[in-house]
Design a protein around this nucleic acid. Sequence first.
DNA 1: AGCGACATGTAAGCGGTTACATGATTCT
DNA 2: AGAATCATGTAACCGCTTACATGTCGCT
Lengths: 194, 194
Amino acid sequence: MSLPHMILGILSYRGLSGYDLNKAFQASVQHFWNTEQSQIYRALHKLHEQGWVGIEHVAQEDAPDKKIYHLTEQGRAELHRWIVAPQPIPTLHEGWLGQLFFGAEADVQSLQHLLEERIRVMQALIENYETNVASGGARYAIEFDAADDLAYWMLTLDYGIQKARFDVQWAESAIRTLEQRAKEQGVHEASSHE
Amino acid sequence: MSLPHMILGILSYRGLSGYDLNKAFQASVQHFWNTEQSQIYRALHKLHEQGWVGIEHVAQEDAPDKKIYHLTEQGRAELHRWIVAPQPIPTLHEGWLGQLFFGAEADVQSLQHLLEERIRVMQALIENYETNVASGGARYAIEFDAADDLAYWMLTLDYGIQKARFDVQWAESAIRTLEQRAKEQGVHEASSHE
DNA sequence: AGCGACATGTAAGCGGTTACATGATTCT
DNA sequence: AGAATCATGTAACCGCTTACATGTCGCT
């Protein structure tokens, strides 16, 4: 949807090669946006066609030659336009909600296991956010000389952490709801046998 | 990702034409999964090729002829398999987080407006969930004779509502954080003028 | 005659993933 | 000699969106 603009954002810190851009991507916005390297090159070509980035060819002796991409004036203008432009709110599109939706087709225990697994994954995610991602962000703030930006980076990271915590809590309460339902059904079945 | 399985799920209630399936989609899972009508027909063809749905041609006099799609045994087996199969957790991929991430390129007020707008949209969403979607679900439970399923439907709806509430709360706290920062910066600037 | 509901599709294009493809340099 | 890192891309495929395309029937 807005990958090109994410790239413009990273390049606003400094000009980068596609290779370095990819690494910067993995290290900075990876907690809410993931991309394949191949896509970055294609997006870069498009941004160049559009006149939003310029290319500087750099010959190297100790490594293969490379191309440094940097923002043009139009590119920076487009970035500024985009940053405050209303964004569409995407639908959730989450498979596990579909599983729950059709949960009556499965047995309650399987659904509970599904939710427990989800809790485990989410907790691992939170731990990763709190250790690797946070420190990675701090490192990048120094590398890109972007002290002002760090606070914003941490704000988005905070969203990721809080949202994952919310998911854990919701899953826990859903497990309890299912537990309750299983008990009630048990009672009904028992009484119908009398 | 799992649109075919969402279709299998809906068809597990009863056989439907593509047209009715589309309507059922809009009325039931619309709060976490949206689809275009054209996609449903294509998915249906694929499901048929795979042997997961059968087609029954129905001639009508008071309306155009139609095709009723219904689950085959394999289709039902596949649905049961999928419901308890681990799902990948997609990354957030939300544009507004990108805007915030690169927030240092914009002024604080614009970002606050962005968040306020987000709050408004989310609150409208919540209201819609609580009125239209909830009652629509109840209606469909009767139509599909799916009283057992209703509880699960409401569970996913609850997630949608709680998640939207979480988003509102987070946005409110983010606005306060930005407010704070703007004040501190104001102080710094004022003191640097002395 | 016109509109809304019923009914089924195709075509073009975009964004994204996975896999493939190549080649230099540096370190072990 | 082999592995890791630096560096840049192409090709095939898939899912989804937007727009197009066609036609019936019943009601007003």
